[in-house]
């Protein structure tokens, strides 16, 4: 269906009026970050990919699990509905992958409380960035998996909804059906491939090269910082600790497998003491270990390549494994 006007801004106004917490890309200096906004003006959609991923909406960097005094006093759960406006196909897919991690098998109640009330509004990509490679991982950047999908083609705003939540949300908007020409345009748009980098994943080879000296070579310049994991839309590791002695809060925060302390055990043994082991772990976690959940856990957004201070490139590292 087609909407006349700025759909995303109008959608934000409506969501805010409906009492949603809205996460949208907002401009900071020269770039965009996903953050909670309180008015439609704060959002800015003149971007390709925000710096941080949309996972902040469902899996915030720090959240309070319990508040304690003599005993547990309060367990804060998300009560408001949440909307993410303006996600790209990669981040939308990443949320689906996080669902698998947090909701299959052991169910994470905190994640669940947010996920159940989540509405995602995605935008189809018109252009790719220099390090995008989602197409080679089976994601169509022009057809994101989300509740509501918006594509802007030649000045026309196409809006469609695949899920029940999405459909009921769209009922509040003044939309008209496409004519045949426009349907054709949209079809062509969705089937057109963008020019992107390609990743070649050879699982058998990965399986064999676990002990290869190749990983030392790749990681020689790794700084063991958390850029790749904190910007990654599918990284889900966290740490839990208490703040306050007699009274306080138990907090869950993001953690990164690249930090040496991540795997340090109380026995003072560290199974991944060297940085190449940690980097290898991240690569295997994206392309091999997580296969038991049925997917690669990489969505090809390219953030870890763009912002790695050492220039480590996951596409090259995985494609050239030996």
């Amino acid at each position: 269906m087609i909407y006349e006007g700025e759909f995303l801004k109008d959608a934000i106004s409506k969501l805010l009026a409906d009492g949603y917490r809205v996460f949208a890309p907002s401009r900071v200096g020269d770039f965009h970050v996903f953050r909670e906004i309180s008015s439609a003006e704060e959002a800015d959609f003149n971007y390709i990919l925000p710096r941080n991923s949309a996972k902040v909406a469902v899996f915030p960097q720090n959240e309070i699990l319990i508040e304690y005094g003599d005993w547990i006093e309060r367990v804060p759960m998300e009560e408001k509905r949440i909307a993410i406006v303006g996600v790209r196909a990669c981040d939308a897919k990443a949320i689906k992958l996080l669902d698998k991690h947090f909701l299959e098998g052991f169910v994470d109640p905190y994640y669940k409380s947010r996920r159940e009330k989540l509405l995602t509004i995605a935008i189809a990509c018109n252009n790719a960035l220099i390090n995008c490679f989602c197409q080679s991982l089976g994601i169509n950047p022009r057809k994101p998996e989300a509740d509501v999908v918006v594509s802007e083609i030649d000045g026309r705003v196409f809006v469609s909804a695949d899920t029940e939540i999405g459909k009921s949300f769209l009922q509040g908007f003044n939309l008209r059906n496409e004519n045949e020409e426009e349907l054709e345009i949209k079809k062509r748009f969705e089937s057109e491939e963008l020019k992107m980098r390609e990743i070649r994943v050879d699982v058998e080879k990965l399986k064999k090269s676990f002990d290869s000296p190749y990983w030392k070579e790749v990681a020689i310049n790794c700084k063991s910082c958390g850029v790749c994991t904190y910007l990654c839309p599918t990284c889900f590791c966290f740490d839990i600790y208490d703040e306050g002695e007699k009274r306080g809060v138990r907090i869950r925060t993001w953690d990164s497998c690249q930090f040496p302390l991540h795997t340090l055990e109380s026995s003072s043994h560290n199974p991944r003491a060297e940085k190449w082991q940690r980097l290898r772990n991240r690569f295997y976690d994206k392309f091999y270990y997580t296969l038991r959940k049925g997917n690669y856990y990489c969505v090809g957004c390219g953030r870890c390549i763009d912002f790695c201070p050492a220039g480590i490139d996951i596409v090259n590292a995985i494609s050239e494994v030996r």
């Binding site: 960097q61 700084k223 910082c225 930090f259």
Partner: peptide
């Protein structure tokens, strides 16, 4: 408030 504490500044 933007800082995500990835500790890249420290690591590099």
């Amino acid at each position: 408030e933007r800082c995500i504490r990835c500790h890249a500044c420290r690591s590099v």
